[in-house]
Design a protein around this nucleic acid. Structure first.
Lengths: 151, 151
DNA sequence: CAGAATCCAACTGGATACTG
DNA sequence: CAGTATCCAGTTGGATTCTG
């Protein structure tokens, strides 16, 4: 875009829809968790940690609807359900994984930035929008009560 | 990972924190909107559309705390506030933009998958988790009341 | 084990009014 | 214009209980 041009937000809207799908609080975590192959419901739940059964079920259902994962029921006793990435899901995994990697690689920088910010604005109060930001104020976070993610 | 290995979710947790930060409903939109340079509050609001002033303010504040954007106040009358990506923000933009691009490029495939799913499960009800999924059921979506995003 | 259903507190975010 | 403060309805999601 050359300076002077008016930036036309042409195809912005449609993307927002999809982003809402893949930008859910847990979507990235789930999809990256399925990176290495199919996984059972309980495995996912345990690996992710901090997600309730209700929400995990709902999120998986949504991922299924959007064609990112398949749901395979094995009618044994006890029953067994496996979730696996579809081709579409595996493709989405690529950029999502990049985000995940970035987050892992730059965690400390963000933490530092946050620390610096609060040193300069001692009385600033972290706004809560959208999903919870688990680390919020607390400088460090060897705290293991936080949600999960990564690669 | 070789088969037989137990997948160790080593550094999963910390990343989740960061993901929560950048995975907010509007974060991706805002950051990609700042791609081409600084932008005023009202510009952002208009470009994004569908975001309330309260939430935009809060989200920007959070981005600022995390070191992704700077906030520059020009004490004129009327006042003027510009937001701009920091170095950290510009780095984050890279993977985030990739996600955005992917969403744009694959919108139709997701829509098709959704359509197919609902044809097979006529009585399925889209679960609502996390942020709203604006397109939900409705087959197509030339509907322009949806949120925003993209490149 | 996987998940559906119910209950309910907590939080979110929109609308509105007001300020510098 | 940019933002804060307040009010408040709607939604979310955790806990719990129950089923095949």
């Amino acid at each position: 875009m050359k300076p002077g041009d008016t930036y036309t937000p042409h195809d912005c809207r449609p993307v927002g829809e999809i982003l809402n799908q893949i930008g859910g609080k847990w979507t990235v975590l789930i999809i990256t968790r399925l990176k290495h192959g199919p996984m059972r419901f309980s495995e996912l739940k345990r690996l992710i940690g901090g997600i309730s059964q209700k929400v995990l079920t709902a999120t998986l259902r949504e991922l299924e609807m959007n064609g990112f994962v398949t749901r395979t029921v094995t009618p044994s006793i006890p029953p067994r359900v496996d979730y696996e990435l579809t081709d579409l899901g595996r493709e989405l995994l690529v950029p999502l994984d990049a985000v995940s990697e970035w987050a892992l690689a730059n965690r400390q920088r963000v933490l530092d930035a946050r620390k610096a910010f609060f040193e300069q604005n001692p009385d600033a109060v972290p706004p809560r929008i959208g999903q919870v930001a688990t680390l919020i104020h607390s400088g460090n976070s060897s705290d293991s009560s936080a949600p999960v993610a990564g690669g």
